[in-house]
Write a protein that binds this DNA or RNA. Sequence first.
DNA 1: CAGTAAACGAGACGGTACGTCTAGTCTTCGG
DNA 2: CCGAAGACTAGACGTACCGTCTCGTTTACTG
Lengths: 204, 204, 204, 204
Amino acid sequence: MPPTPAPRTPDASRRSERSRRAILEASLELVGEAGFQKLTIEAIAARAGVGKQTIYRWWPSKAAILLDAFTARVEDPEYAAGLPDTGDLAADLKTVLRATADEFTDPGFEAPYRALAVAGAADAELSRQFAERLTGPGLAAYRDRLRAAREAGELASDVDLDLAVALLTGPFFQRWLTRGGPLTHAFADALVDTVLAGLRPRDA
Amino acid sequence: MPPTPAPRTPDASRRSERSRRAILEASLELVGEAGFQKLTIEAIAARAGVGKQTIYRWWPSKAAILLDAFTARVEDPEYAAGLPDTGDLAADLKTVLRATADEFTDPGFEAPYRALAVAGAADAELSRQFAERLTGPGLAAYRDRLRAAREAGELASDVDLDLAVALLTGPFFQRWLTRGGPLTHAFADALVDTVLAGLRPRDA
Amino acid sequence: MPPTPAPRTPDASRRSERSRRAILEASLELVGEAGFQKLTIEAIAARAGVGKQTIYRWWPSKAAILLDAFTARVEDPEYAAGLPDTGDLAADLKTVLRATADEFTDPGFEAPYRALAVAGAADAELSRQFAERLTGPGLAAYRDRLRAAREAGELASDVDLDLAVALLTGPFFQRWLTRGGPLTHAFADALVDTVLAGLRPRDA
Amino acid sequence: MPPTPAPRTPDASRRSERSRRAILEASLELVGEAGFQKLTIEAIAARAGVGKQTIYRWWPSKAAILLDAFTARVEDPEYAAGLPDTGDLAADLKTVLRATADEFTDPGFEAPYRALAVAGAADAELSRQFAERLTGPGLAAYRDRLRAAREAGELASDVDLDLAVALLTGPFFQRWLTRGGPLTHAFADALVDTVLAGLRPRDA
DNA sequence: CAGTAAACGAGACGGTACGTCTAGTCTTCGG
DNA sequence: CCGAAGACTAGACGTACCGTCTCGTTTACTG
């Protein structure tokens, strides 16, 4: 048996942190300037002052780079906080959904995020990573807040939490991705109100 | 004055119907076989037995070809029928949503439709056409059925029809596009039931 | 039987003469400026204002381009004239060999020719073409002149013409390629005199 | 003032003999297997189990490695012996030239030697070293033998020894490098006979 | 016999050029 | 004069090596 015939895997401990950062930054800059179509590996390498092979060595695709670039942001502690819990479920959900609407309206956020959503829609493996590393934690926060509300008796005891989350985020996501209309605070409020109307405990 | 200095637009009356059909068919075949990534203009031209210029003359992009190919299907009279109205709103919605779930599970339908959705998410102009020609009529059918129900007193008189449609389709769309879970009949049913619970007339 | 399964071969009748010329000229310019090492396909394409694929479509290697570029020169009628025949063999050979020495001393000629000789030495197939299209006609001219001299009784009747040509050109070629010394007129003269001394008819 | 600001030159006394040998051997093996084109520094390093820097530290180019590898062979005492002198110049020259022909027909010898000749033809500095260390001693041996013959009255007293050597080796070299024909014993014999015919003392 | 300095195996790095692929345009020719 | 065929310019793709530059690890001389 040969000891290690074809390891292929580079030595991560020798990785250049400077190059890694430069690549992530260059990717976000370029996708903001020119869109995902014109985000080429060559442009990233040139902008980051890096050889192409350094990119190919550490990332399997352009989308994976963007995902890393975004994940770096999301790993900020602020994002990990979960949803607020003031005791008023509707108010809390509106707060978060309004903030999300504002975020998705910011071009600096929208461009790379849309690029990732598009790439994820086209590629199942990327889709999985996208869900796990970016959208997953956010959705879990919704689920936690709704569970707390259910236990407090604000929601029917048989509410399907996953479905509830889907009702809150699905219309929002659809409107954003398909450009079905503006992501206003009014839309966020109406969405929350209508969904919660269907989730309240039924009369005894 | 020169008679026609720059006649940019080709003469549609001379267009070859045979080529048009061959191109649309080749596109659907190729996207089904190899995915949107490998759907290239060159491959379409080769498969359709057509010169590349014939494609560029009549369509602005690959996605536009797919859109035409799909629209041809949707223009079948069956699709234009609108939603059924048996008098039982929940049952009617479940019927349609279940059928849609089955459709989106069929690979022959899914591949090109996902390709279009992806292209639309990335390109605003295409997004507009996609909505106008493909998703629009379907959503209008939902709105019509819900309006009838509202007038019949099955729904609260102040229900926002657009929001109601979004609540029914958004979670469905999101789950499909992001591969968030299987599009089962059970999911369709739960979705309809929960949404309608929030739209019913409130007790006097 | 399929009609034409994989022709691969481009249609020569549609070839762009303008591009062909531009590529040949750019190659000669570049090899003169920077040497064969820096003669890259990309540089040729850029200088010629041509896509790389146009080069790959019509030539198998950089050396093949140079060979074509050179052959174009050699096909000038002047080159096809054969050696002079004044009746004085030694004088005629010295005339030609001196002219050749001058030519090989001219940098504009030397650079691409050396590049070709090097490439030919490394690659057997190219070597064959190089001999057939460039050096062959010249050597044949020597052989013809020597044959005439043999028939005129100036050379021994059993002289091996190929060997005689090799004796005249071999030392010259070796000195040039290995930089064994300067290609002077004196060298050409001494070479001719010594070789002819060995080829003259032996005393009865 | 710093004692030794930029030493640049490595300490030869610490050089690893094991690595040196492994590199020379790997180079000869690789050039024999795949030709000079595919002889890369990385391949040599990998084959020799050596870091690339160890190669760059001690050799300026691939060709220089090959030159060293070859020189190691030539420094065998057998090679340093000079030409035989049996008193019969023609026989002695034929012996040597036939042996050389055999050598140049051996693939194990031919591949690296051709690689060196090619590299030398392309690079003047390498050409100089090639002549000095490899071909020079051999040519000097020819010159010595011819000088002895001249002094013995077998050759004309005014024979130019360098030219005589060139006449014997030039046609041979040319035929080999340009693949102008097979290097047979018959060719060697004819070459010697014809050249010597031109160098003999003229009749009184 | 430790300390240390340099050569070592290893391989990541910024680059260049490769040869291939596709986009979108331009040209030729047959029907 | 439209359409098929496909050659064209352009440029991104992913790969192979280049020569340089760290990394730790031997290795051999020195204090």
